[in-house]
């Protein structure tokens, strides 16, 4: 196995699961789209591997993932297909009890957020990125990131009010 392949495989083995989880949040639980996003991001990462700085693969992959998602959300067909009252993938939902029900509620609430607000919330509160980095990834002004995050959080609190109290750090 070539060095490039070996290094790439090691990285993917270690980080793929986390990328998938991030993609799930970005897509509000749409497992298929999340998997597509990750595959696309990893393919781009493989192509760019020689240029990726040592130790920078994680950030690069995350950036490609978010970029791909942001681009996707700007496509008309995405908007047509993404409109759904129900979570598109039942596999993650499971039986309605305890933590599963709570997770379902969170995913449903995320799905109810506009793409920009959901992306801002996930980037800020899941990936722990600062406003400047979010701004670059989302290709919007820092002020927009802040407002999208604030609105997203407010809406999440409203949507989840009956299920769980939300505290953002």
């Amino acid at each position: 196995m070539r060095r490039r392949d070996r290094e790439f495989a090691e990285f993917v083995g270690a980080r793929r699961a986390q990328l998938v989880r991030t993609a799930r949040l970005l897509t509000a639980g749409d497992e298929h789209t999340a998997e597509d996003l990750v595959q696309t991001a990893l393919t781009k990462l493989y192509l760019a591997w020689p240029r990726v700085e040592p130790g920078g693969a994680d950030a690069y992959a995350r950036r490609v993932l978010v970029n791909t998602f942001v681009d996707l959300t700007r496509r008309p067909w995405w908007r047509r297909e993404a409109v759904a009252e129900e979570l598109p993938d039942a596999a993650l939902r499971g039986s309605v009890d305890g933590a599963v029900a709570e997770s379902d509620a969170v995913r449903a609430a995320l799905a109810a957020l506009p793409d920009g607000q959901r992306t801002a919330v996930v980037l800020r509160h899941w990936l722990d990125l600062d406003v400047a980095e979010c701004s670059r990834l989302m290709k919007v002004d820092p002020g927009t990131v802040k407002s999208q995050t604030a609105r997203g959080l407010a809406k999440l609190r409203t949507l989840l009010a009956d299920d769980v109290e939300v505290a953002a750090r």
Partner: peptide, 15 residues
């Protein structure tokens, strides 16, 4: 009160 991070952690689904 549940931390949003914890909620997202669970909503992200299993590895």
């Amino acid at each position: 009160m549940t931390e949003l991070r914890d909620l997202l952690e669970r909503a992200a689904g299993p590895e």
